[in-house]
Computed example of a mutant assay.
Amino acid sequence: MSATASHFHLIKTDSGTAARRGRLQTAHGTIETPIFMPVGTQATVKALTPAQLREIGAQIILGNTYHLNLRPTSELIAELGGLHRFMRWDGPILTDSGGFQVFSLAKLRKLRDDGVEFHSHLDGRRLFLGPREVVAIQSNLGSDIAMVLDECPPWPCERAACEAAVARSARWAAQCLAAARETGFFERGQLLFAIVQGSTYDDLRRGAAESLAALDFSGYAVGGVSVGEPEPEMLKQVGATTPFLPAHKPRYTMGLGTPPQMLKMIAQGVDMFDCVLPSRVARHGLAFTPDGPLNLRNEKHRRDPRPISEEVVNYTTQFSRSYLRHLVQAGEILGCTLLTLHNLHFYLDLMAQARAHIEAGDYASWHRAWCERYESGAQRV
């Protein structure tokens, strides 16, 4: 498989929006899009087994290059057969490049023209990530989809600083692509996605998207969103990027979002999402329903015999809200497992509904009605 191989098939586009129904072929299986990817930062999706992930419909999961290279190291994972064998997940895996840590660990890193110098958040030791390093690490991990190294500007961001970040990200992307070609990355069936930055500047996003599209990566991501900006601005940034990405390549918005945000971004032409939200809030007693989030810590659920939802049926919904609240209040591990399973299933089922409605040709009206119900809490939970 080469960087330009036809690995993405666009099945249908919605007539009322820019929503797309697609199919992405990877070395470890086919992904039906739009799709949500559960986050497995440390080679595990917290609280769930690979078998449970399969049972709730997970097609692809995400791992973190920065964290896995620190512990247990990409060399050890390679020695033990790669990330799929290491964590016993036989489906596709996407790994980020560590670029987000350029943003999130700003106090522990120093930007250089050739990459990023970090002090490990674990033990303080110095390490360096450049384009060649992130390609080598993701090659060791054996991920199906790898991301280029980029600089994620903060919000708000002065234009001059954003221009510098966009230019640096473009250089690093080209260097990642060159390193991948030189090392047989694509011949091993791995795909490489570029990342479009530009903060809130529409012209910078368009320029970045067009220049990266000319390099013909395997896919393209919208980066630098959900970094503190208001939701309308976030949606505006996505809408300023997707029209300038190749129609025949998959599009991925990184690190978000809520259920309505994802549906609105699908309407803007996004195919792939990841977010820690559904698993993170599960550990704090929050469950997703079609009528909005349900806080199981609330006293009103103490004697509530109902399941979380009558409409979204999974293993967790055999248990009462009363029992789930008890687990949360008692700090029982089972509570984390059951609520994580439910929330991730909710996200994955929502993507399955989106795919069905794009195919049926009524995505525009369906997603608006779904978002209105969720955001208004029409039937109080």
Rank of each mutant, 00 (worst) to 15 (best):
S320D: 01
H342T: 00
S322Y: 03
F319A: 02
L334V: 08
L338P: 02
Q329P: 08
R325L: 12
L334R: 11
G335P: 05
T316M: 06
L338Y: 06
Q318C: 04
E332K: 14
A330G: 06
E332P: 09
R321Y: 08
L334N: 07
H326I: 07
L341N: 03
T340A: 15
H326R: 15
T340V: 11
S322V: 03
G331I: 13
R321F: 12
L339N: 04
T340D: 06
L327C: 12
G335M: 12
T316L: 04
F319K: 02
V328Y: 08
C336N: 15
H345W: 06
L344K: 00
Y323N: 02
A330Q: 12
H326D: 07
F319R: 05
L339V: 01
G335V: 04
G331W: 11
L344N: 02
Q329I: 15
Y323T: 00
H342M: 07
L334Y: 11
Y323V: 03
L338W: 06
L339Q: 03
S320H: 02
A330K: 15
L327D: 00
H342C: 04
L334F: 14
L338I: 01
L344T: 01
L339F: 12
H342S: 04
V328D: 05
Q329E: 15
F319I: 03
H345K: 04
S320K: 09
G331N: 13
I333T: 07
V328C: 13
C336D: 12
T340Q: 08
L338R: 08
T337G: 04
T337D: 09
H326W: 14
H342R: 12
S322K: 12
I333C: 11
V328G: 08
S322A: 15
G335Y: 13
H345M: 02
A330T: 08
N343Y: 12
E332L: 13
S320Y: 06
E332M: 13
T316Y: 04
G335K: 10
L324K: 05
L339T: 01
T337W: 10
N343I: 05
Y323G: 03
Q329G: 14
L338D: 01
Q318I: 01
E332S: 14
S320P: 02
L324Y: 07
A330N: 10
L324H: 08
G331R: 13
T340G: 11
R321M: 09
Q318P: 00
